[in-house]
Write a protein that binds this DNA or RNA. Structure first.
Length: 318
DNA sequence: AACAGATACAACCGCACGGGT
DNA sequence: AACCCGTGCGGTTGTATCTGT
């Protein structure tokens, strides 16, 4: 498996660098759609891209992935980033894991380009008493957060959900091995519309698939809007699998990026079957390992504490 | 209109880590 | 145990776009 391919070393093609062209994007997207599995170096080669696997991976994760939320950060997302950064520091991947549809790179850029400066300006006007290296006032133990006044409560909108059936989740989640999404595990605290079906959205989905748009327009937890800000009806388990939705998402995503229009996320079955884990890089169980690391650092408990703070992610079911 | 500086975003680089050989 | 390879992460750099003069 790991033996080097002699052909690979001989005909060293000069790999492209820099910005991706639309053609390259399409090649990668189509390849991921049709056979998006295997190691990234193989993907780069098989897709006919003169890129290194690393570059392809980055492009996919940061730009082409169909579940990405585009556009500006909402005030709620800003607050969340600020707060998570106060706890986690520059662990962008862990912060991103709690902001569905956002990538670590995106959050990192946003922090460095916008939030950092904004908070710096704030602290110069109102000096921080703790004098720490961090830029924003905080009191993790006490639960003081720089939340905006106008959204102390996030509203949990489910108007688009046509079926209250439970969303399908991977076995490792349903087996309760751990809670990958302690902040947003609705199953812990919330009944969806009072219906018997529970909405359990683990990290693997919120980051890579169906759980998109926890912080949608106006910072609302919008389970009914997934991926492209298009209206979306969550199908019942009997009718549609996650694979169906994700593959459809990829199909739609190609069009979406071409037309830059909102795309309806439907469950049409005109696609090839793709493993969810393969599609979103979940086969490496990374989403679990992060939390284990956090546990070692004693951060998991901190993150758990967050959910008990009055102003933080105070979802309400309408 | 042209230019410079600021800003936002995309991508690269180096390193660390884990798993396989 | 040592090495190789793939992957993920965070820091940094590069580039496109915006804004002010």
């Amino acid at each position: 498996m790991r033996k080097p391919d002699p052909n690979m070393t001989k005909d060293k093609i000069k790999l492209r660098k820099g910005l991706w062209s639309p053609e390259e994007d399409e090649k990668l997207m189509k390849y991921m759609l049709t056979s998006g599995q295997g190691c990234w170096s193989d993907i780069a080669k098989n897709a006919g891209l003169q890129r290194c696997g690393k570059s392809c991976r980055l492009r996919w994760i940061n730009y082409l992935r169909p579940d990405l939320k585009r556009g500006a950060f909402s005030p709620q997302e800003e607050d969340l980033i600020i707060h998570l950064h106060s706890i986690l520091g520059n662990r962008w991947s862990q912060i991103a894991a709690r902001l569905p549809g956002r990538t670590d790179n995106e959050i990192k850029n946003f922090w460095n380009s916008t939030l950092k400066k904004r908070l710096k300006n704030n602290t110069t006007t109102s000096s921080s008493p703790n004098g720490s290296d961090s830029l924003e006032p905080r009191d993790v133990e006490g639960g003081i957060f720089p939340l905006h006044e106008h959204h102390h409560t996030m509203t949990f909108c489910l108007d688009s959900i046509s079926s209250p059936s439970a969303i399908s989740v991977p076995p490792m989640v349903t087996n309760n091995q751990f809670d990958p999404f302690p902040l947003l595990n609705i199953n812990n605290r919330y009944d969806v519309m009072g219906a018997p079906g529970l909405l359990d959205v683990p990290t693997c989905l919120t980051q890579g698939g169906l759980g998109e748009a926890f912080y949608g327009d106006c910072g609302i937890l919008e389970t009914g809007k997934i991926g492209f800000e298009g209206d979306f009806s969550i199908p019942s388990l009997e009718s549609t699998s996650i694979e169906d939705n994700n593959a459809a998402a990829i199909n739609n995503s190609i069009d979406h990026r071409k037309s830059n229009n909102n795309t309806c996320f439907n469950s049409s079955s005109d696609h090839q079957s793709i493993k969810v884990g393969d599609m979103f890089g979940l086969e490496n169980h990374h989403w679990g390992g992060e939390n284990l690391k956090m546990g070692e650092w004693g951060l998991e408990g901190l993150m758990d504490n967050i959910s008990s703070f009055p102003n933080f992610l105070d979802f309400q079911v309408e």
